[in-house]
Design a binder for these strands. Structure first.
Lengths: 225, 225
DNA sequence: TGTAGACTGACCGTATACAGTTAGGATGCA
DNA sequence: TGCATCCTAACTGTATACGGTCAGTCTACA
């Protein structure tokens, strides 16, 4: 018999919907979010909305709007660089750990599935680059790094970065335009270094990969998002 | 005129109260938290409780309890080591950045206040070690590292580690017993290295300091908290 | 005596209700 | 015409209400 669809709760749904809406630009940075309006739009009561807003505020995705309500956070250059710095450090750790696990053959079934998925993701991205698939390629990019973090065996790396994911997505949307070719070549090198069990090389490549994104911001203005 | 006491909202209060209760052992790992009971205890409605529980669940401090409700998360050895690994990486980054800022004299008024506070904190801890002040010294320990992160100039380091703070506190309570003398000597060395602007030394010392905590867990059993 | 099934009470998620506060406009005065 | 004050409507935070589900117990039958 078919598995029943596990019905996720409303708070989670609202959270995801808001996440998407901010990412796609439906809600712009600085824009105030009214509970009533959101509730009506999504066809739920204010209760799940309030809870979702709280969580997103906790994550820094939303921020207080005057003395009343919340708004989409604006990120300035300094903030984004700080975020990318933290991200770099943890993704280097992830690459190093993943390679070490590969070397001592610590991978389990679950990991081999991830490796298969990674291969498919790289192949898919190569294909998508031929068309106009910026949004998809950004999604793949995020997915790639998520999988590497998974291969590290340290679940805290992903969960630690999770709250910043939306900000990261927004950054990637900006910084990866016309750079997918070089990005996915780097991804492939990192992946190979990990599989070969070369921790130093994996970390080195990841560092170079992530530092590039940071450097791109040198050219941007102060208020970006 | 005197400043008015800023009345923090109930959700925040509940969150803090739960945080404390878990830390002090009033709620034990694995123990289920009932909304009604908490609401009555704290003299508020279930609404703020629900929101606080959501946030703490999001942070991993609480976890689902069967198909209904939430419980205090149990941390096993593997999880704790993962957490400490992430913490080590980010605290090394913080130390490095703080030392770099010291070298190029980037500190501002706000930073010099932190430096003063740090000196006082170190002196205070030296005093407290003469008595039985385990809880206070643990608090100071957390505070010390928080201040170093602040000196790094990267606010994301602290905010990234914030959700794991409770777990960290619980870990420190266990691992620092009878080790305060050596811990605060290390803190002092790290602080000096930062002030002298020696980024490599600051990072090296921080790495040694944080790796010790990780190694202590080798001796613990699987299920700890 | 052990197990399966039904029932009931407790608890959770969501909706609705209410009260306090705030923001923004309108009005009056300079 | 510009600014300050007052008022009102809207919106937020918290409380209460309600419906559905889950767990635990009790009973009946093997």
């Amino acid at each position: 018999m078919e598995k029943l669809i596990p019905q996720i709760d409303l708070v989670e749904s609202v959270k995801n919907a808001l996440f998407d809406a901010i990412l796609t630009g439906e809600f712009l940075p600085g824009e105030k979010l009214a509970q009533d309006e959101l509730a009506e739009k999504m066809g739920v009561s204010r209760q799940p909305i309030i809870q979702a807003l709280r969580i997103l505020s906790e994550n820094g995705i939303l921020c207080p709007h005057g003395k009343k309500g919340v708004a989409v956070s604006k990120l300035n250059k300094k903030n984004l660089q700080n975020l990318l710095q933290v991200r770099r450090e943890l993704d280097c750790l992830a690459a190093r750990l993943a390679a070490k696990r590969a070397k001592i053959r610590e991978f389990e079934d679950h990991d081999y599935e991830q490796i298969d998925s990674l291969k498919k993701l790289i192949a898919l991205s190569q294909l998508q680059m031929k068309g106009d698939n910026h949004a998809n390629l950004v999604r793949n990019d995020l997915e790639f790094h998520k999988m590497i973090r998974s291969l590290s065996g340290n679940t805290f790396i992903q969960s630690t970065l999770e709250p910043h994911l939306l900000h990261q997505s927004r950054i990637f949307y900006i910084t990866t335009v016309n750079r997918h070719q070089v990005i996915w070549e780097q991804h492939e090198s990192i992946f190979e270094a990990i599989l070969s069990g070369d921790a130093n090389e994996a970390e080195h490549l990841t560092n170079a990969h992530t530092v590039e994104a940071e450097q791109l911001f040198e050219w941007y203005q102060e208020e970006i998002l």
